[in-house]
Simulated assay, not measured.
Amino acid sequence: MDNNDARRTLHLPRPEGRVAYDDAGAGPLVVMVPGMGDLRSTYDELRAALLTAGYRVVTTDLRGHGDSDATFGTHGDEATAGDVAALVEHLAAGPPVLVGNSMGSSAVAVVAADRPELVRGLVLLAPFLRDPQLPGAVRALMPVVYRAMLAAPWGAAAWAGYYRSLNKGTRSPRLDEHAAAIRASLRRPGYLRQFRDLTLALTHAPVEARVPRIQAPALAVVGALDPDWKDPAAELAWIRDAIGARAVLVADAGHYPQHQTPGVVAEAVLGLLAEVAPAAPAAPAAPAAPAAPAAPTDRGAGA
């Protein structure tokens, strides 16, 4: 663990490869998980706010993404949940508050249902606790669409463009930089294939089956312009009622509120943390030492 906010990549060994993470700060532990096709730097603004507020913050890449290895044969919510649980046990710092965006929310919800002793609280950003309700024909076509969109040589650029389109409403000043980093990451050997394998395997049905078992205090944040849901406000209301979450609908955000409207998200997250994992108050600054008295001037008799 680093006691400053410098990002140093660490790796957690898993049966099929290594999962990357970074670890900084001191205080109650918060672990943050990005969504599919994203990088852990999606949390840069929220990470900085939590470090400043006195938290230990760990952000992790998904298997087959970012600085994690591209050697995994299994993907999806349950596999990712296994990685998150293993990371929490490895950190051995007591139960953290788990933060997830999109598919990352699905994974942390699985951990909360299956391993409640590892979870102090949940923050679900644009979460998938169930599959979107799509017409049968559209659902049947999705594997075909993903295979075509994520094929080489255009797949990395196609996903980066689609990623940008999910940022409806307010756009982060660093969106171009972040999308370029995603594109560059997917262009490395093996990573586009890992991502395609994930999209073809992914279903959130295992999460929905676990929703009744989620008992951790939770915050759900949904962008009112999120294109992944026909009615984002209705989905947020379902999540609120299903797990007893406090709910925040962000008027001018799409699928990535953590870096579209980071101030709104940080305020909501810090509100939950203050209740379930309060950070120690900052030590008062030490009083300034009194100035030393001026040395007397020897003027002598002839002054």
Rank of each mutant, 00 (worst) to 15 (best):
residue 83 D to R: 15
residue 119 V to F: 06
residue 114 D to T: 13
residue 74 T to S: 13
residue 75 H to S: 11
residue 100 G to T: 07
residue 104 G to C: 09
residue 113 A to W: 00
residue 77 D to W: 11
residue 106 S to W: 01
residue 79 A to L: 04
residue 99 V to G: 06
residue 119 V to W: 00
residue 102 S to Q: 02
residue 98 L to Y: 04
residue 115 R to V: 06
residue 108 V to A: 07
residue 111 V to L: 11
residue 110 V to F: 13
residue 90 H to Q: 14
residue 80 T to H: 12
residue 122 L to D: 03
residue 108 V to T: 12
residue 120 R to W: 05
residue 99 V to Q: 02
residue 105 S to D: 02
residue 83 D to M: 14
residue 87 L to K: 05
residue 88 V to F: 05
residue 82 G to V: 05
residue 80 T to F: 09
residue 97 V to K: 01
residue 105 S to R: 09
residue 117 E to Y: 08
residue 83 D to F: 15
residue 110 V to A: 11
residue 116 P to N: 06
residue 114 D to H: 12
residue 105 S to A: 15
residue 86 A to G: 13
residue 94 G to R: 04
residue 89 E to A: 14
residue 92 A to Y: 05
residue 114 D to Q: 14
residue 74 T to N: 13
residue 118 L to I: 03
residue 93 A to C: 10
residue 108 V to E: 06
residue 75 H to P: 08
residue 98 L to N: 01
residue 75 H to C: 10
residue 90 H to A: 14
residue 78 E to M: 13
residue 98 L to G: 00
residue 77 D to A: 15
residue 108 V to S: 01
residue 97 V to R: 01
residue 92 A to Q: 09
residue 110 V to H: 10
residue 92 A to S: 14
residue 91 L to F: 03
residue 98 L to C: 06
residue 81 A to G: 02
residue 95 P to Y: 00
residue 84 V to E: 04
residue 122 L to Y: 03
residue 80 T to L: 15
residue 74 T to H: 15
residue 108 V to Y: 03
residue 87 L to F: 06
residue 90 H to K: 11
residue 96 P to K: 00
residue 106 S to K: 03
residue 73 G to T: 15
residue 99 V to K: 00
residue 83 D to Q: 15
residue 114 D to I: 12
residue 91 L to Q: 01
residue 102 S to H: 07
residue 90 H to S: 14
residue 79 A to W: 02
residue 117 E to P: 05
residue 98 L to H: 02
residue 85 A to V: 12
residue 115 R to D: 11
residue 97 V to P: 04
residue 105 S to F: 01
residue 105 S to P: 01
residue 98 L to A: 06
residue 76 G to W: 03
residue 92 A to F: 10
residue 93 A to Q: 07
residue 108 V to N: 03
